[in-house]
Design a protein around this nucleic acid. Structure first.
Length: 563
RNA sequence: GAUCUGAUAGCUCAGUUGGUAGAGCAUCUCCCUUUUAAGGAGAGGGUCCUGGGUUCGAGCCCCAGUCAGAUCACCA
């Protein structure tokens, strides 16, 4: 392993510590009495405390030193004085252990008493300390001056996401995002549980990926010898539970979609779905706005928030705009009663990219998406979607072309989607079949599987039900003013880091030959390499175990491939 | 998938027309008892993302690639 000088120095210190009889990774529990915030909030001059944390900065001035200790809640200043720590003749603990063998990043436990410095900083005077865990890699050290300007920040997005642990240690704002994320989940759970709805779990491995139209990840179950799909949605399973007789069920659902990645899409993301029996989408709208108002308050302490340049207020109630009205408002075009051809012509006149595979629903969605969606900044319910793009939604009670569906738009983005759920099993079957036709026509967003077990469940009877789905990642992006989904996920998906592989001299010879042409006939490359049989064998086996090359047997013979 | 931008010390970043690789912080050594981004003095630390090419000579120019970011496309 290639070590930097600083890493070697820290390993040497580790050895020295062990040589002095100090265990750098002790096993025993460390009993602390106060957290950093408790120290500051319940501050009393002269009070004895025991604290633990990571050493984050040091200012050494000879026989005295100030340092900062960081724990789960924040930082507190500690004061090391040689003669306080080493009361006798032996000054090793201060001169050697503290000054020379500790580093920024080490975890230590401290026993001390509180005092206020001349500059007024609440501080712990160290009477004794103990190394709890030695850190072998130097942390980046961002610093802030009095005006809040940051120096030497750890800001490179790639490094921050790949090494989130470092990001969290060093950038306190990052921790706050995830505390808020957790607070949001707690708030929703409380809101639902208080109303008597039950949190449930449904399968992530599904033999039919249903409930949405999206490209699934596929895997294989060996014992059953069948394909299984990672869920793209949990909707159909939650409705089965409503059929089974629960009044309200909800699930925070990790969903997986094998589609593009960008700052608003991660291959796995979290949705919350809730289904409540005997309700309709009008009830659900009111429920949703109350829910979001409550969540915003719990997370931020206020319903008002900023997202980029937009001021957003989650205070209920929100405006309701029909999709038809929205399209008229922004394009002047009335979609009511229009045929597929008329819609396509209108879309073309608006310079939208449309094609023959698009049905009515898709065309309307395109017009809405391009011309209207981005215009709704304040939370707004868009209601009454065309039937064709909502295969799981009940037909509108007043208009058979529409469905009882709403989406909640915030800052031009969808964050919630809800229906009066379709519970007519015969119509549901027809809608699925229509989707199949769209799919065969080439619409890759249409559902291509029919879940017959779900239809069977509906045939037993599902009460009138309203369902709501909320994109949790998106919502937390809005509540924390983060335009990138990667900032609100602890570990966003990244391309794997390429490990640099150490190759032997013989292996390098073969790789260099493969770089010229690949695949190459085994006998040919072997003679070109001019290696002995034994060395050749070792080299090619080495390359195969290091995943640098493969040997493939074809009708033409054996070939070596560069990976 | 397309376009643009970027990758240099542990971190943040300079690097001129192609001519010995730089700064601040961090690290190491020495001095220093109430500081708060930053006390003083000195020292060490580099696969300039990778692989080719041009050239007497490449961190810099050319080609190919890797990774990331932004914009777009895609996305119930």
């Amino acid at each position: 392993m290639q070590l930097s000088e600083q890493e070697r120095v820290r390993r040497d210190k580790l050895t020295t510590l062990k040589g002095m009889g100090i265990n750098p990774y002790p096993a025993d529990q460390f009993h602390y009495t106060h957290s950093s915030t408790q120290v500051k909030e319940n501050f009393e001059e002269g009070k004895k405390v025991v604290v633990a944390g990571r050493l984050m900065s040091r200012r050494i001035q000879g026989k005295a030193s100030f340092a900062e200790l960081q724990d789960g809640e924040g930082r507190v200043q500690v004061y090391f004085n040689r003669d306080e720590i080493c009361t006798g003749e032996d000054k090793t603990l201060y001169n050697e252990v503290y000054k020379k063998l500790l580093d920024i990043g080490d975890f230590i436990g401290i026993e001390g008493e509180l005092f206020t410095t001349m500059v007024g900083e609440k501080t712990i005077k160290v009477l004794d300390f103990k190394l709890l865990s030695k850190s072998l890699k130097p942390l980046p050290l961002p610093k802030k001056d009095r005006e809040g300007h940051e120096y030497d920040g750890f800001q490179d997005a790639e490094q921050r996401y790949r090494q989130r642990y470092v990001d969290l240690v060093v950038n306190p704002g990052v921790k706050d995002i995830f505390k808020k994320r957790s607070a949001l989940f707690t708030a929703m759970r409380n809101f639902f549980n208080e109303k008597g709805y039950m949190e449930v779990e449904t399968p992530i491995l599904q033999s039919i990926p249903g409930g949405a139209a999206a490209r699934p990840f596929i895997t294989h179950h060996n014992a059953l010898d069948i394909p299984l799909y990672l869920r793209i949605a949990n909707e159909l399973y939650l409705k089965r539970l409503i059929v089974g007789g629960f009044d309200g069920v909800y699930e925070f659902s990790k969903n997986f979609r094998n589609e593009g990645m960008d700052r608003t899409h991660n291959p796995e993301f979290t949705a919350m779905e809730i289904y409540v029996s005997y309700k309709d989408y009008n009830w659900m709208m009111e429920f949703t706005e109350n829910l979001l108002e409550y969540c915003a308050l719990q997370v931020n302490g206020t319903t008002k928030t900023m997202f980029k340049e937009h001021h957003v207020d989650f205070k209920a109630p929100y405006k309701r705009v029909t999709m038809t009205a929205a399209i008229i408002q922004f394009t002047g075009f009335d979609i009511t009663g229009k045929s597929e051809e008329e819609l396509r012509t209108a879309a073309l006149e608006m310079n939208l990219e449309v094609n023959e595979t698009m049905g009515k629903g898709k065309l309307i969605d395109e017009i809405f998406g391009e011309k209207c969606e981005g215009k709704f900044i304040e939370p707004t319910f868009i209601i009454d979607y065309p039937k064709e793009m909502s295969p799981l939604c009940k037909e509108h009670r007043d208009n058979p072309d529409l469905t009882e569906r709403f989406e909640l738009m915030v800052c031009g983005k969808e964050i919630a989607n809800a229906y009066s759920e379709l519970n007519d099993p015969i119509e549901q079957r027809e809608r699925f079949e229509d989707q199949m036709k769209l799919s065969q026509k080439g619409d890759d967003e249409a559902t291509e599987f029919i879940d017959y077990d779900f239809l069977r469940a509906l045939e037993y009877g599902m009460p009138p039900t309203s369902g709501l789905g909320i994109g949790m990642d998106r919502l937390i992006m809005f509540l924390t003013n983060n335009p990138s989904i990667q900032e609100v996920l602890f570990f966003p998906q990244m391309r794997p880091e390429k490990k640099k592989v150490e190759l032997t001299e013989e292996e390098k010879v073969v790789i260099d030959l493969l770089k010229v042409t690949s695949p190459q006939a085994l006998e040919e490359i072997k003679s070109k390499s001019e290696l002995s049989n034994k060395k050749w064998d070792k080299a090619i086996k080495g390359l195969r175990t290091k995943d640098q090359a493969t040997v493939d047997k074809t009708n033409e013979g054996l070939f070596v491939n560069l990976v």
